[in-house]
């Protein structure tokens, strides 16, 4: 079995999906991330990441917002799942763990 990993970009997308709560879909996630990262994100890349996350079971999607105005088009909303949260915290723990092992003296010295 392949070890399931969370890529850096996927992690950001997953986080954004979580923070947006009920209003997470293509455009909002894109704009949230663009605001945060101060760089352009292609919708295509976002869809690809969401697809992979969905495959891994870390986000779920639901259909909503079918209106006459949009010509029968639908919004695909995404939500973070329980497994997603677990994966996020695992990555975070691992990072914290590594970070805490950085010698404090060196950090202080580099910061000064």
């Amino acid at each position: 079995m392949k070890k399931v990993t969370l890529g850096a970009f996927e992690e950001l997308v997953l986080l954004a999906t979580g923070t947006l709560q009920d209003n997470a879909y293509g455009v909002t996630i894109k704009m949230e991330l663009e605001d945060l990262l101060k760089k352009k994100i292609s919708l295509g890349a976002l869809y690809a990441a969401l697809q992979r996350l969905e495959e891994k079971g870390w986000v779920s999607s639901r259909i909503g917002g079918i209106t006459e105005k949009q010509g029968g088009r639908r919004k695909q909303y995404y939500d973070i799942t329980k497994e997603g949260v677990v994966a996020l915290s695992e990555v975070r723990n691992m990072r914290n763990e590594l970070f805490s092992r950085l010698p404090q003296v060196k950090i202080d010295w580099l910061k000064s």
Binding site: Y25, G26, V27, K30, L43, Y47, G65, Q70, G72, R73, R74, K75, Q76
Partner: peptide, 14 residues
């Protein structure tokens, strides 16, 4: 298609 079009349309309007 409909998902992508929705997103693109919204983005377009903005």
């Amino acid at each position: 298609l409909s998902t992508a079009l929705w997103d693109l349309d919204e983005l377009f309007q903005i």
